[in-house]
């Protein structure tokens, strides 16, 4: 466990700028999630921290010590790869023991056995230790892959979308477990994903990354409630935030320079049409059970929101829309703080 810092790190592959001037500090015991779409530079960032890739510029520090030029083996890092994380020619036990058996580490075999068994217990895979790594279900494989990182006590665990290849139910389960284990062990984890739910549920802090740039870093709550840009706002929240051109809602008072209004479900109240205000039309209602997905039409734009299942809404019905503290963005997509409410 340690502090890990990236200072103005950049990396390009030919024409592609995979990571651009990225700075990030991960504190001891923190669970930081980098959230970004495919191709955002998440894997490249992890590879640079681990030493598998050299940054073109910038520095990487582990506990204040610069390791930018060090080979991977001396950095004391554990890496869970997105794919191919288990050795198919080894048993589950040997897969878990592999990081400990590194000749550089010289851990006696009884200690290795103890660590492997503890880790297996932590991940509920004790019964599978004798299996070939290829004779596991997807969920078990992912557990073993995570176990290969947890079996050591490295400066930092790097995890590259470890849950992306398992089904939704299992993902939810493993998400919870991983968080529990991280808290239990006090491990420092840098976890990258494109899944906002993983980010929201596990992270101490989320970094939103796009096109190699870190757009915003903060607690899940900060990122959700105070996104710094249109893009960040659109990354979090289900259904996705709605954007309306400011010109379509001249009725509401807006801060100067606002070009776009960002409306999340909780910013939008639907009431029976009462003559005045902003009037939209219900286009479609989807029943989710406890809630309804409501598609509204408003001056040629579609808004998606959630509504109480008991609210009587019919397709074709006109309703009054009330905006409650929505988000405002300028022409460049930057957030503008609202005037005093």
């Amino acid at each position: 466990m340690a502090n890990v810092a990236l200072r103005h790190v950049s990396k390009r592959f030919g024409r592609v700028e995979a990571v651009r001037d990225l700075s990030l500090a991960i504190n001891d015991g923190e669970f930081v999630v980098l959230l970004g779409p495919s191709g955002a530079g998440k894997t490249t960032t992890l590879r640079m921290i681990s030493g598998l890739e050299r940054p073109d510029a910038g520095a990487i520090l582990i506990d204040g010590r610069e390791v930018t030029q060090d080979p991977p083996g001396v950095r004391d890092i554990a890496f869970v790869f997105q794919q191919y994380s288990l050795y198919p020619h080894l048993s589950v036990y040997d897969n878990l023991a592999f990081p400990l058996r590194s000749p550089a580490r010289r851990i006696p075999e009884p200690t290795i056995r103890k660590r492997v068994e503890q880790t297996a217990e932590l991940l509920h895979i004790t019964g599978k230790l004798g299996n070939r790594a290829t004779r596991l279900s997807g969920g078990e494989m992912q557990r073993v892959a995570i176990g290969r990182a947890l079996v050591r006590d490295p400066a930092i665990h790097l995890m590259d979308e470890p849950l992306s290849s398992v089904d939704a139910k299992l993902r939810a389960e493993l998400r919870l477990e991983l968080k529990r284990i991280q808290v239990e062990l006090g491990a420092t984890i840098l976890y990258v994903t494109h899944d906002q739910v993983e980010a929201m549920t596990m992270a101490s802090r989320i970094g939103v990354i796009k096109d190699g740039e870190l757009l915003q870093l903060g607690t899940p709550r900060e990122i959700y409630e105070n996104p710094s840009s249109r893009y960040v706002a659109s990354r979090l929240g289900t259904p996705q935030i709605n954007f309306l051109p400011a010109s379509l809602v001249p009725e509401i008072a807006m801060p100067a320079g606002a070009e776009t209004v960002g409306i999340r479900t909780e910013h939008l109240m639907i009431a029976a049409a009462n003559g005045g205000g902003i009037i939209g039309r219900v286009h479609r209602v989807e029943h989710l059970g406890d809630q309804n997905h409501v598609y509204l039409e408003y001056r040629g734009e579609t808004l998606v929101t959630l509504a109480d299942a008991h609210q009587p809404l019919q397709a074709g019905q006109d309703v009054e829309l009330k905006l409650v503290h929505p988000l405002y963005f300028d022409a460049a997509g930057r957030r503008i703080a609202a005037a005093v409410h």
């Binding site: 681990s50 030493g51 554990a78 990081p99 000749p103």
Partner: peptide, 21 residues
């Protein structure tokens, strides 16, 4: 896949050791 050796490199194996193991 390269990831196999890269995992070994990160775990502290040298390249020749990774090649062999």
């Amino acid at each position: 896949p390269r990831e196999y050796e890269e995992a070994a490199l990160v775990d502290g194996y040298t390249r020749l050791q990774a090649l062999r193991k």
